[in-house]
Write a protein that binds this DNA or RNA. Structure first.
Length: 280
DNA sequence: GTTTAACCCTGCACGC
DNA sequence: TGCGTGCAGGGTTAAA
């Protein structure tokens, strides 16, 4: 789950979960449930800090969602590759790999489902929140209004790195993963292996605009759902941006702009897709 | 400083 | 049909 999917999830949570009070919290007896709440030694250390609390705010930081509680504590959630939140009711059976269930006073529950358990969740106090290493290291958000193309150009020039891994580096800029970094680079007309300090100011502006446009569009389409098991929103509904993808997963298919077949290469173990004609 | 590989998991598609 | 292999949208770490 990358920035657009996390942002759609945050908005769903804000509409449907903020304001609700947690009646009970359960860490399920699944094989890997303790991996999900790995920062808590025992189930109870996690659940007791949630029970009786009201959720007051849903915030996003990079790919993290922060659910603020009425006592100042914060439930920090990272979805990893297969984690997701799902709203449900008592009558609906729990999907496989449901590791955590929060049941609300007003009815209904919130399930955290994660087959591959690369995701995690933990509760922290407001004071300790600032000390969470992963959150401290999250770089500027590309949709933040303080993120200007001039700032971005300065950051790019300071580094001597290939664009693709740099865009995916959460300490450089937050929110992009494998799909959207490819789509942004295509929209900017830049190759994955262009060096960050080699861009003209025109190219910097193109990259900057591509970031805004691709991410905003993906949010508007409610995220990318590639396969059945992949991302769905809070209510189990898939996104629709997959139909808008220009390069990701389209190896061998004609470029939507110039009809040249899309190429794929492995970079650091991850597949990258690009148009050899449109990107340089 | 930058890049690569390995690792943490499960599920699925694919080829034999 | 069954089995092994590789791969998947993330992030950390150690080593090159």
């Amino acid at each position: 789950m990358e920035l657009p999917e996390v942002e759609v999830m945050r908005r769903d949570l804000e509409k449907d979960v903020v304001g609700r009070k947690i009646q009970s919290a359960e860490v399920r007896p699944t094989r890997n449930a303790m991996r999900v709440v790995r920062r808590h030694g025992k189930r109870k250390e996690f659940t007791s800090r949630l029970e009786g609390r009201k959720i007051t705010k849903a915030e996003r930081r990079g790919k993290y969602v922060l659910l603020h509680l009425d006592n100042g504590d914060v439930l920090v959630v990272h979805f990893g590759m297969s984690g997701r939140f799902l709203r449900g009711t008592k009558r609906q059976s729990l999907p496989p790999h449901t590791h955590v269930v929060l049941t609300f006073h007003q009815g209904g529950d919130l399930r955290f489902v994660d087959p591959r358990t690369f995701g995690e969740m933990f509760v922290t106090t407001a004071d300790e929140l600032g000390k969470v290493k992963e959150l401290q290291h999250i770089a500027i958000d590309p949709l933040d209004h303080v993120f200007t193309w001039q700032t971005f150009g300065g950051l790019l020039a300071q580094r001597a790195s290939k664009l693709k891994p740099l865009l995916m580096d959460q300490k450089f800029i937050s929110g992009l993963g494998n799909i959207y970094s490819d789509e942004v680079l295509f929209a900017a007309g830049l190759r994955h292996d262009r060096m960050s300090d080699s861009l003209s100011s025109q190219e910097v502006r193109r990259l900057y605009r591509a970031l805004q446009e691709v991410l905003q569009e993906a949010i508007r389409y409610r995220g990318t759902t590639l396969e059945d098991e992949a991302y769905v929103d809070l209510f189990g509904k898939p996104g629709e941006f997959q139909a808008e993808l220009k390069v990701y997963g389209r190896e061998g298919q004609p470029c939507r702009r110039c009809r040249t077949p899309i190429q794929s290469v492995k970079i650091a173990g991850r597949s990258s897709y690009y148009c050899p004609q449109c990107q340089s």
